[in-house]
Design a protein around this nucleic acid. Structure first.
Length: 267
DNA sequence: ATGGTGGTCATACCA
């Protein structure tokens, strides 16, 4: 058996539904986790996802900003969301699914971008981001008995040197400052998470999931960052087949600035 | 050092 799960920041689910359908038609992951849906729950486009076989959908949205959702071919139970950083943003949603007799807790995160100024004393958005990361340090991969865990999402931090196009030039740029990268690595360490995207790709190899809208030619410049992540509890590590970053999606019509990332498991 | 693009909702705000 093969099980697949995709994470994708789509930057408006309503505007992006044509490329979401294009992706699902071709790749058909068992579960799709979305971030930045930018839609209140009552206006979420459930019908097109259901029509494609994603009958189990949980959503946590708000008007205009943020918003997360999970669309699944298999049942989702015990769902909840948590207000990390306590500012009332829709940035987390979680549920349980079962596969091959295994119980799995899934977390879908949209970590705050944090604004431009990497100083919590003068930038409340950066302060919120750091508070958010502090609270994530309490989340353990083995929090529930007899339950594996998968954590995905747009974490808005590129933790390793080769998760950005230039480590030196980005050290003072929000998403790659030491307080953020060290913070995220501490979340991994304390929670006993596995960084699945790096399981089969060495740390000295460049790996990106996001390319800015502001580049004249994103592909030629290739100034990317790895902001999107898939983690799991250690027991799922040996079951990982591969992780695909669908870079071509950055070149689709009306693209998101993030591309879909999919993990495939022998599960 | 600056502004570059894109989405939301109708004006600035956020990414």
């Amino acid at each position: 058996m093969s099980f697949s799960i995709t994470t994708w920041n789509i930057n408006s689910v309503r505007l992006r539904m044509p490329i979401v359908e294009k992706f699902l038609m071709k790749h058909q992951p068992d579960i799709l986790c979305l971030q930045e849906t930018k839609v209140p729950n009552e206006l979420f486009p459930l019908a097109p996802l259901r029509a494609m076989g994603y009958e189990h959908i949980i959503i946590h949205g708000q008007k205009g900003y943020h918003g997360v959702a999970i669309a699944s071919r298999i049942p989702l139970t015990e769902d909840h969301s948590f207000d990390y950083g306590s500012v009332g943003h829709a940035r987390h949603i979680s549920a349980i699914f079962e596969r091959s007799g295994r119980r799995v807790r899934l977390h879908n995160f949209y970590v705050p971008a944090g604004g431009d100024e990497p100083d919590p004393a003068i930038n409340p958005k950066f302060e919120h981001k750091l508070n958010f990361i502090e609270e994530m340090k309490l989340l353990k991969a083995e929090a529930e008995v007899n339950t594996s865990a998968i954590l995905v999402g747009d974490l808005n931090i590129a933790p390793l040197e080769h998760d950005v196009w230039s480590h030196k030039q980005l050290l003072k740029i929000v998403s790659h400052t030491p307080v953020e990268t060290e913070g995220l690595l501490e979340v991994i360490k304390r929670g006993a998470w596995l960084d699945l995207m790096r399981q089969h790709v060495p740390a000295n190899e460049k790996l990106y999931t996001w390319w800015s809208y502001r580049a004249k030619d994103w592909e030629a410049a290739d100034k990317g960052r790895r902001l999107d992540h898939i983690w799991s509890s250690s027991d799922l590590g040996p079951l990982l087949q591969r992780v695909d970053i669908l870079k071509e999606a950055r070149g689709w019509e009306k693209p998101s600035d993030h591309v879909p990332v999919t993990a495939y498991f022998n599960l």
